[in-house]
Amino acid sequence: MAQSLFNIIVFPGFLFLCLAGVCAEYFDRIFHARMQNRKGPPWFQPVADFIKLSAKEDIIPEEADSFMFRAMPVVAVAATVTSFLYIPLWGSQALFSFEGDVIVVLYLLTIPTMTFFLAGWYSTSLYASVGAVRTITQLFAYEVPLFMAVLAPALLADSWSLSGIAAYYRAHPLYWVFNLPGLAVSLVILLGKLEKVPFDIPEAETEIVGGVFTEYAGRYLAFFRMTIDIEMVVASSLVAAVFLPFGLGFGSVVGFILYLLKVTAVIAAICLLRTIFARLRIDQMVDFCWKYIAPAALLQLLVNIVLKGVLSQ
């Protein structure tokens, strides 16, 4: 019991993820800034932002549904933190695992997006509503390719649990190379999931002010921002676990360092993509996902089905 509580609250649960999220945000911001030829924020900036926001007044619009408005940030954080418990960080064993947890993790990672939608919808403000509709439109565009891309390595490993996938690739060290197209697909989709340029359409500042977060202030906004930071870590860890399962058998110290490097590389790749593109329009985004990303994910699936046939002989 005490062990479980420690796992959920301290490591690798909430507190660890908060710390990791803050570091990830800092890394993302400074890397972005350096690529844009700026100096970037000081190292404590994400923490300072969090503290500053938490100290501000919480304003709940009169028209908004007060309960939903306050509940959504908590639900978002809870869902993201929970999904992290099923992801193997180093070695091949996650904290909890069961056959089929890869589906659960993917669904848990959908929940923050759904809470963004609900938060925007129940804010009842015009900008927030437009942002909410955009969030959900975008979700429909990237969710299917994401599932296809993540399930392809699982198919090859013949296991529906993340730990099982990791164990398979640990046993067959070079097989992860087959999944590189899926890695590319999931990196692009992460941009949509984390709402970063070119897919930051739901919160496009110059178009719809703050999108779904327009009405949010103070603690609740701080929670949402923390969710996005944590989501960045969790989603990067998921990508690292599924698509970059190499070097798993070197013990926990080397494994942890390797894990950090993998996550950093994924975040750096996302950051690079968001630096070199302009924001797309929602119709262009949907077109792009169905025309290029979904076929690429499908191709990965087909390749893995064929590979499985060939390798099992």
Binding site: M35, Q36, R38, V197, I276, A278
Partner: peptide
Amino acid sequence: HEIGFDTLLMY
């Protein structure tokens, strides 16, 4: 900046 291409703005 208006089309979310902040890198161009900075440069």
